[in-house]
Design a protein around this nucleic acid. Structure first.
Lengths: 346, 346
DNA sequence: AATAGTACTGTTAGCGCTAACAGCGATTTC
DNA sequence: GAAATCGCTGTTAGCGCTAACAGTACTATT
């Protein structure tokens, strides 16, 4: 803002009028060169004599000239824009991922257009992707935490670089945090205290992350020769965690609970508090995500951290690779266990 | 996706080749009409005979034709894109606001380009706005929760519709939740229990919302003839709330605390729990924001709700009004008190 | 039967930019 | 001293689309 001021047009006319923004031609006239030379200056071509370049720069500044992206895109076919399809950008994970992508993209000179969808079904995704393609984005990221979203990607358009976050059918490269291993870490951690078993409050089964975490929990138990106990299903919300907590509180022999996300863990902690169950005294609890609040739950929550920023960065990396003609494969990012008081009897 | 399939080009050529996407002209040839008629069809003009329209539609489908926005933007001067400048889209408020804007915009046929800034200073904002203008957005929303951001808007460009969320110097229309009144509600609520005073944990003073909330608290106390006690400053983070809580716990005669946001309230609750202070038994606590988790804090938190979705919608409304030549004024949205257990001794 | 609509379709020009190539003066090369 | 080369600048064409206007049939009006 506060550009070189909206100086009069180059022509001696009294100006005002509907005032079309200055174009290459206007700059060229003012600088006394051809429009092509101006074009070279704004594209940092070497082929301009320094003196000329300065003159053009001055004209650009005094006119407050800004290249018209539409015109440039029309002739080059490049828009400098990437599209991101996201489902609920209010959740911590997707929001952070979006932020990470945006930062990486901006550094590389790309703008980000977002398209939110309210439902994860194939139609909504298709519509969002379609709308981004109409915007002529050069690449698309689909933040696809649902099984249905990943499924929908089977019908994704071919001609455009596309990366999924979370999961996608094979030809499409995906970035994901290793949920399975994160769940394993959590479960092993709980088992290390000598519990007979570990209970699990899962996320909604139509989420990839939920089923991977459940699988990690289940198989880890099996690897220890333990038959997994009854599973409690949640929907990520604190309320569902609260209800799961109330239900688990009745269970005898409860010692360790792995909750599929921090929000539900919050609800569960609350239910346990109401039921007079002490954490970590009576029961040890592990969450998943490491939201900023987790450290201040009561008690502070042991949880599995996902580095969403890294997810965003790597996602852009994959997209960028594709835009340069590469055919990158999927990548996984390791999750890390953050041990806090909810599993520290000390 | 799964568009009408990438059928061969209209020409009988063996296709493949660098395959430029189909243009109006290609559709026109296939449908046996002029490109202008195709243009009319895609712009829903009445002036096309239904039979012709159908023929053109068929050609469009079979070619998988998609209008080129760049070309359209070049000639119409309209890009169908709005820009949003946001500071930390990871926070609940900004994220929800962004989502609200996006939904409203999409319904009206606009795409959203986001530009995040890491610092709230004038330079960063200017840069972000500049980058959006290069993208030729038709309007800009600045989510400006900082005093500095609002200040920076004094130098905002003139020629383009612009709306601020949070606050802005007078000529620029702003949408905001009535923080002052929200703080008043919270303070009155606490006073209604007969406390001698109400303590306050504020947000960082360079945030508009923080200073408005503090002002609401301070003036409400004064209106009751109470001299405001020492203020504790936080930075929105749970950690700072925790520290504020530890510090307040030493205070004698502590009975009521109004915390400037829910995250800090979480930290404070935790500090109180550690100090053996019962909420709401010994001290009553009110937060601000009503994040989804607040209902499941320990105890569930009385707080002031901001309808961020409404903020988003109204923001788009103001922008839309400007784009149609109007000069809307600023608007405020009422905050509502949500009473929960943290102030319910029952 | 001539005239004036009406309903649809086509032609032309140009939006602002870059790619490709065409100058053109100054220097170097043989 | 003519040709080739280099460094810079200009000319032209055209990207895909819409605005504006120009037909062209066909119907309604006088």
């Amino acid at each position: 803002m506060s550009n070189g001021s909206d100086t009069e047009r180059a022509s001696g006319a009294p100006a005002t009028s509907p005032r079309r923004p200055p174009s290459l031609a206007d700059v060229a006239v003012l600088a006394g060169v051809s429009h092509m030379t101006v074009s070279r200056v704004i594209n940092d071509s070497e082929l301009v004599r320094p003196a000329t370049r300065e003159r053009v720069r001055a004209a650009i500044d005094s006119l407050g000239y800004r290249p018209n992206t539409a015109a440039r895109a029309l002739v080059t076919g490049r828009t400098g824009t990437l599209g991101v399809v996201t489902m609920d950008s209010t959740l911590y994970g997707p929001a952070s991922t979006l932020y990470g992508i945006e930062c990486a993209a901006r550094e590389a000179g790309f703008a980000i257009t977002v398209s939110s969808v309210s439902k994860p079904d194939r139609g909504s995704i298709a519509e969002a992707v379609e709308s981004l393609q109409r915007q002529a984005v050069e690449g698309i990221v689909v933040i696809a935490p649902h099984v249905a979203t990943a499924e929908a990607l089977k019908f994704a358009p071919q001609g455009i670089p596309l990366v999924a976050v979370g999961g996608a059918p094979p030809p499409i490269p995906a970035i994901s945090v290793d949920q399975y291993d994160g769940a394993r870490l959590a479960t092993e951690h709980l088992l290390s205290f000598g519990h007979k078993t570990v209970w699990h409050v899962s996320g909604p089964s139509d989420w990839l992350e939920a089923s991977e975490r459940e699988r990690g929990w289940r198989e880890t138990l099996k690897a220890h020769g333990i038959r997994p106990p009854r599973l409690t299903k949640g929907d990520w919300s604190p309320l569902s965690g609260y209800e799961a907590g109330k239900s688990l509180a009745k269970e005898s022999g409860l010692g360790a609970v792995f909750v599929a996300n921090d929000q539900m863990a919050l609800g569960l902690l609350r239910a346990f508090a109401e039921a007079g169950i002490s954490v970590p005294g009576d029961v040890q609890v592990v969450g998943f995500d490491d939201v900023p609040e987790a450290e201040f739950f009561n008690p502070p929550l042991t949880t599995v951290r996902q580095d969403f920023n890294e997810v965003g960065r790597r996602t852009f990396g994959l997209l960028s690779e594709q835009m340069n003609g590469g055919q990158p494969g999927s990548e996984q990012i390791a999750a890390t266990l953050i041990v806090r008081q909810s599993t520290q009897p000390g």
